[in-house]
Nucleic acid binder design. Structure first.
Length: 351
DNA sequence: TATACGTGGTG
DNA sequence: TCACCAAGTAT
């Protein structure tokens, strides 16, 4: 058994990555990268933002649709806000989509259409934080930046048997990660760390038997793998209630609202309704004989459970009440809605 | 430092 | 069924 001090962690990791790298639409694999192919910074940036707190499986189709519709950062910068929000619908964390547009426009208007090639330049852009700045700098620009995401945190916590809980111990894990960040192939190293965390050093049932870092792994030696990384206890999620109102005109148009940019589902299209609280007051957008559907929407957000009651009535007027909009029958696409709003529509459709 | 911010898959 | 989890950021 070789001591961690004398084990070439990054070398072992890169050897493993050369043989087992996952193929992804935004990735230039290790063989092509060695042959000189450079990844497109636009595609690296777009994928990294989509992958924030989001699984690879969920991102694939969205990435394909975005890059087909907007192949360059200039094309994205020129897109209408509503089009981008509609394409992002269902992916969650909608501040990412608003910041995506801000960032694309900043790159187009303030950086001559080229992404900054350094951590400092990247982190100054909207929606790009410490992780994403390091990831783009390393993967797209060969900068020896240290990438610290949930995967790397888990791998480092286990490799060094770090018992202190996240998020407090994050700086320690960052130092461990920085100590093995190589000057050569930093982008492949970063992607290798994340692939290892996603496929071998997984949160549950890790495949230690085939792990390239098994020899030096302290948690493996001490039997603490399943306990790491430790995390501070989470708060319980309260249950909130709400009412939404689906009103359709005889011509097929729908009464809807464009939600304000700040806050939950910011910038997204949705059904008008009450606030979401312990006991909300019903708040129909106009006087009518509202009929309540017999079923409810149940949906869980990051920090609360929601139960929505659905009300319907015919829309008899041609102009929307203050603050609302009428979406024409042909412009209405359920796929433009955030999932919780699409669930309400699905209930109406299945009534 | 703590909280707000989505969604779908998984055991 | 349900808590946990996924390539985090903004405030």
């Amino acid at each position: 058994m070789r001591d961690l001090q004398h084990f070439d962690v990054s070398g072992a990791l890169l050897d493993w990555y050369d043989r087992h790298a996952r193929e992804m639409p935004w990735r230039v694999g290790p063989a092509a990268r060695a042959a000189g192919t450079r990844p497109d910074p636009y595609r690296v940036w777009l994928s990294e933002v989509m992958l924030q707190q989001t699984t690879v499986a969920a991102v694939r189709d969205y990435f394909h649709r975005f890059t087909t519709r907007w192949p360059t950062v200039a094309a994205l910068a020129a897109a209408p806000d509503e089009a981008v929000m509609g394409e992002w619908a269902g992916l969650g964390y909608y501040a990412r989509a608003r910041n995506l547009l801000k960032c694309a426009r900043a790159v187009s208007e303030e950086h001559g259409g080229q992404f900054p090639d350094s951590y400092e330049g990247l982190i100054a852009l909207p929606g790009i934080g410490p992780y994403t700045a390091a990831a783009i700098a390393a993967i797209a620009f060969d900068r020896a930046e240290t990438v610290l995401d949930g995967n790397v945190e888990r791998v480092m916590a286990r490799l060094h048997d770090v018992q202190e809980p996240l998020p407090g111990v994050k700086p320690v894990l960052k130092e461990h990660a920085a100590a093995i960040t190589p000057a050569k192939r930093p982008g492949d190293h970063a992607q290798a760390m994340m692939d290892l965390g996603a496929t071998i050093c997984t949160p549950r049932s890790p495949a230690c038997g085939i792990c390239p870092l098994r020899p030096p792994c302290l948690a493996r030696q001490r039997g603490t793998v399943a306990d790491l990384p430790r995390k501070s206890p989470k708060k319980p999620k309260p249950i909130r209630h709400g009412h939404v109102y689906l009103a359709q005109h005889s011509d097929g148009g729908w009464l809807m609202e464009r939600r304000p940019d700040k806050g939950l589902l910011g910038g997204m299209l949705g059904w008008p309704g009450s606030d979401w609280s312990e006991a909300p007051e019903p708040s129909p957008p106009f006087e009518a004989q509202w009929r309540e559907l017999p079923a409810e929407v149940r949906h869980t957000f990051t920090h609360f459970h929601l139960i929505l009651r659905i009300h319907t009535a015919p829309l008899e007027v041609d102009t929307a009440p203050e603050g609302l909009v009428i979406i024409d029958k042909h412009a209405f696409r359920p796929s433009d809605l955030p999932t919780v709003m699409r669930k309400a529509f699905d209930l109406w459709r299945g009534q």
